[in-house]
Simulated scan of single mutants.
Amino acid sequence: MQVNPYLHYNGNCEAAFKFYEKAVGAKIEVLMTHESAPPEMPVPPEWKKKIMHGRVSIDGEVIMASDSPPGHFHQPQGFSVTLTVDDPADAEKKFKALSEGGAVNMAFAPTFFAKGFGMCVDQFGIPWMVISPKEM
Rank of each mutant, 00 (worst) to 15 (best):
F19V: 01
P5A: 12
C13T: 03
F79W: 08
P44L: 07
K94E: 09
N4M: 14
L7F: 05
S80I: 06
G102H: 03
S132W: 00
Q75T: 13
A97H: 05
D90V: 14
A109I: 08
G118R: 00
V81N: 03
V24A: 05
P70K: 12
C120P: 02
M1P: 12
I58Q: 03
I28H: 02
K50V: 02
F117L: 06
Y9T: 05
V24F: 05
S80F: 04
M64N: 11
F95M: 01
A114C: 08
P127Y: 00
H8D: 12
D122R: 01
F95S: 01
I126D: 02
K94F: 12
E61N: 15
K115T: 07
S36G: 13
E14S: 12
H53Q: 12
M136V: 11
Y6P: 10
E35N: 13
V121E: 06
M64E: 13
Y6F: 15
D122P: 04
M136I: 11
D67V: 02
P133R: 07
T33V: 10
I63N: 04
M1L: 11
G101C: 09
G116Q: 00
W128Q: 00
V56C: 05
K48I: 09
A91Q: 01
T111R: 05
I63A: 06
G25H: 08
A23T: 02
G102N: 05
A103T: 13
Y20E: 00
H8W: 14
S99L: 04
F79C: 10
F113A: 08
A97F: 04
D90T: 15
G60N: 09
V81K: 01
N10S: 15
T111V: 10
L7W: 03
T111E: 03
P39C: 07
A23I: 01
L83I: 06
E21Y: 05
G11V: 04
R55D: 13
V104W: 02
V43C: 07
P5S: 11
V85S: 00
F117N: 02
M129P: 00
F113K: 06
Q123I: 04
P42V: 10
S36E: 14
T33H: 08
W47S: 14
Q2F: 13
P69M: 15
E100G: 09
E40G: 09
M119N: 12
T82Q: 14
E21L: 06
K18A: 11
E61S: 15
A26P: 03
V85Y: 03
I51T: 07
I58L: 08
M136F: 09
V56K: 02
V130G: 00
C120A: 12
A26R: 00
C13L: 05
M136P: 14
G118S: 05
K18L: 10
H53Y: 15
R55N: 14
K49V: 08
Q123R: 15
E100P: 01
G118T: 01
K27W: 07
M136L: 11
P76R: 05
N105H: 14
P133F: 04
D87W: 09
E29N: 14
M129Q: 10
Y9G: 02
A65Q: 03
V85C: 03
K27F: 06
